[in-house]
């Protein structure tokens, strides 16, 4: 039984993982991620890819909302900026995806920082409304700036190619998404244990004290918007190249709210929680519609009811989480681990 975790050096003490159990768990997760695509059929691969793309976007949003405390309703629009930037550069300029995706992330970071300017003066709900304006403005630009975006018409994005072969199957795209997700996770986790990340959390917890301790609020809030939007842009850009056909309808206010739900259910201010939340919110509708189809044989009216039931179940799950586990799946998982860390002396 462990009574605590002690370390000989600060370097070891500051590492992410400490105990053999933690390393084993990490190894198992990685091994699973590597083996999974060889065992899964296309349906599960699609789900996995959707989860991966959503997780990157959720980590981005969590950096801003969960860690820095700046509520954003502009997630959908920022994903659109990433998706359209990368998609247009690839489709119109013929640039390769490994150039357009990083550029799209940078563009989204700049757009995000721009729309983060009101955060200096606005907090909470007021800021949420300002980011809602960002959502509407960007949506309007996409649907009305026909010459650039093609307006309400769908944009066809070429599938990425690597060494001459197209990455046009779920199996192949899986690896791109996996690498991006691992990169995003590592970068965000590192950032959060260094100067910039601490300043983010300090702003969330007590902005005036942070300022008194020397944190330039304006600069760090804009940085939070930029870094967050960078990864949200990545999520959008990956969506574009993965789907190969996108339209503005994929990036509406509903998307923004879906992502907020992901990080609330997964755990505000938790990187792993962002991933759990993305998985949960992607799998829930899939499970519900499978269930619905299964019931269709017995209850013919099911086909009509499925969409409504999905919405209702979504809402119900969010409410249940808010009531019973406001800290999300990440907290649930921590409790389970704590239980087994002390097991069998867990009283």
């Amino acid at each position: 039984m462990q009574s605590g975790i002690f370390h000989a050096s600060y370097q070891k003490d500051m590492a992410f993982r400490h105990t053999p159990a933690q390393f084993i768990r990490l190894g198992l997760v990685l091994a699973f991620a590597l083996i999974f695509p060889f065992l899964a059929n296309n349906y599960y691969l699609t789900l996995a890819n959707q989860i991966g793309v959503a997780a990157i976007g959720a980590i981005g949003l969590n950096l801003l909302t969960g860690f820095t405390g700046q509520i954003s309703l502009g997630q959908g629009a920022f994903m659109a900026v990433g998706a359209y930037s990368s998609g247009l550069m690839a489709a119109r300029l013929g640039l390769p995806w490994f150039v357009t995706i990083p550029l799209a992330c940078l563009i989204t970071a700049m757009v995000g920082a721009l729309f983060g300017v009101p955060s200096l003066r606005l907090k909470g709900l007021y800021l949420a409304i300002a980011t809602l304006a960002a959502q509407q403005i960007i949506e309007w630009l996409i649907t009305h700036w026909d010459a650039l975006t093609g307006g309400v018409e769908a944009l066809v994005v070429p599938a990425p190619t690597l060494f001459g072969s197209a990455i046009n199957t779920d199996f192949r795209f899986y690896w791109i998404i996996l690498i991006c997700l691992i990169g995003t996770t590592l970068f965000a986790s590192n950032l959060l244990r260094s100067k910039v990340g601490r300043a983010f959390v300090a702003i969330r917890d007590q902005d005036i004290a942070a300022e008194v301790m020397g944190v330039n609020l304006f600069r760090y809030k804009l940085t939070a918007f930029a870094v967050s939007s960078f990864f949200v842009g990545l999520s959008g850009a990956l969506t574009a190249h993965y789907r190969t056909i996108i339209s503005w309808e994929r990036f509406t206010l509903e998307t923004s709210i879906l992502f907020l739900a992901m990080i609330i259910i997964g755990g505000l201010g938790s990187i792993s929680g962002s991933i759990y939340g993305a998985a949960f919110m992607t799998l829930l509708p899939a499970i519900l519609s499978n269930l619905g189809r299964g019931l269709e044989d017995f209850v013919p009216a099911m086909a009509r009811l499925i969409p409504f039931l999905q919405q209702a179940a979504f809402g119900l799950v969010i409410i249940l989480f808010l009531i019973f586990e406001p800290e999300g799946i990440a907290k649930l998982w921590r409790d389970v681990k704590d239980y087994f860390r002390l097991w069998p002396f867990s009283y």
Binding site: N190, L191, K195, V196, A199, V227
Partner: peptide
């Protein structure tokens, strides 16, 4: 905070 120098990139890559 005021004594530390690392930024987004050096912090993110640690």
């Amino acid at each position: 905070h005021v004594h530390l120098r690392s930024g987004v990139l050096s912090g993110g890559f640690y």
